Amino acid sequence: MRPRTALATLPLAMALTLVAGCSAFEDDAAPPTEAIEKARTTFVDAGTVTFDLKQSGIPKGRNGVSAANGNGVIDKDTPKFKGQVTGVIKGASAGVEIVAVDDKTWMSFFTKDFNPVKMSDLGAPNPAEFFRAGSGVDQVLEHTSDAKAGEQTRSGDTVLQEYTGTIPEADIQRLFELGEGDEEFDVTYGIEPDSGELRSVVIEGDFYKEKPTTFTLTITDYGKDVEITAPK
């Protein structure tokens, strides 16, 4: 029975070791300002990323984007996006393919062709603006205040260090074309410590007057080879 007992205690010993390692990692977390600034420059320098955006819920009677996923080209002058956007328009939910180049957007809805569309007419933001260096996701990072180191988490096999803080309403209004109830919004970043890559962003607050909402952004594939062109 003794060998069996020893084997039974092995997983517990390994778990305790892992917990100890996690605690040490949290204690050694980079200073918030330094880590967030590194994440900002790493994001801009990547040139391209893949992202997945989800919203917790759109109030009844409102238009908006409930989810979006695709590739983005990060650039100050000509940001780009290509992917699928799921939204609610006049109470109906639908998924469409979107191509956005700078301030122009095209939509494919149950067709192979892309037609010009104004996202503002649909109550939705231009997804390319998330990738405009100087006013997109990187600006949200730059404007983060009251930043604090949080817990260590895992995303698959990747260890992330969380940082919390607040961001101003102006950034929410610019990117999401929402933000009617708060002067600032709570944000939690998940940053990969070694590379400095921003892997997740969770923003919580009164995006609508009716109720608080949460947007969750997952970022992967830094520097992936992506080609996005305007539809002909």
Score class of each variant (00 low, 15 high):
1 M>D: 11
2 R>G: 01
3 P>L: 12
4 R>H: 08
8 A>P: 00
8 A>K: 07
8 A>N: 04
11 P>V: 11
13 A>L: 14
24 A>G: 06
29 A>T: 10
32 P>T: 05
32 P>I: 05
32 P>A: 11
34 E>M: 08
38 K>N: 12
40 R>S: 10
41 T>W: 07
41 T>E: 12
42 T>P: 03
48 T>A: 13
49 V>I: 15
52 D>P: 06
54 K>V: 14
54 K>F: 02
54 K>L: 06
60 K>C: 00
61 G>V: 08
62 R>I: 11
62 R>H: 12
63 N>A: 08
64 G>S: 08
65 V>S: 03
65 V>P: 07
71 N>P: 00
74 I>A: 05
75 D>P: 08
75 D>N: 14
76 K>V: 10
78 T>A: 10
83 G>S: 04
83 G>R: 06
85 V>H: 08
86 T>K: 11
91 G>D: 10
91 G>E: 10
94 A>Y: 12
95 G>Q: 07
96 V>G: 01
97 E>K: 13
97 E>S: 14
100 A>E: 00
102 D>A: 15
104 K>I: 09
104 K>A: 10
108 S>C: 06
110 F>E: 11
110 F>I: 03
111 T>S: 11
111 T>M: 09
113 D>Y: 03
113 D>M: 10
114 F>G: 02
117 V>G: 01
120 S>E: 14
121 D>C: 01
121 D>P: 01
122 L>H: 08
125 P>G: 05
127 P>V: 04
128 A>Q: 03
129 E>D: 14
130 F>L: 14
131 F>K: 04
134 G>P: 13
136 G>A: 10
136 G>N: 04
137 V>G: 05
138 D>P: 09
140 V>T: 09
140 V>I: 15
141 L>Q: 07
141 L>W: 03
143 H>P: 04
145 S>P: 02
147 A>F: 06
149 A>M: 05
151 E>M: 10
153 T>A: 10
153 T>V: 15
155 S>R: 13
160 L>W: 01
160 L>K: 09
162 E>N: 15
163 Y>C: 03
164 T>D: 14
165 G>C: 06
165 G>Y: 07
166 T>I: 12
167 I>D: 04
168 P>E: 08
171 D>C: 07
171 D>L: 05
179 G>R: 08
179 G>S: 10
182 D>P: 02
183 E>V: 11
184 E>F: 00
186 D>L: 10
188 T>E: 11
188 T>V: 14
191 I>T: 04
192 E>D: 10
194 D>Q: 15
194 D>S: 13
194 D>W: 00
196 G>L: 09
197 E>L: 00
200 S>P: 00
203 I>Q: 02
203 I>W: 00
204 E>L: 03
206 D>K: 15
208 Y>L: 01
209 K>R: 14
210 E>Y: 01
210 E>A: 13
211 K>N: 13
211 K>V: 07
212 P>G: 01
213 T>N: 13
213 T>Y: 01
215 F>K: 06
216 T>N: 07
217 L>F: 10
218 T>L: 09
219 I>R: 07
220 T>S: 14
221 D>T: 03
222 Y>K: 02
222 Y>P: 00
225 D>N: 12
226 V>Y: 07
229 T>W: 03
232 K>P: 12
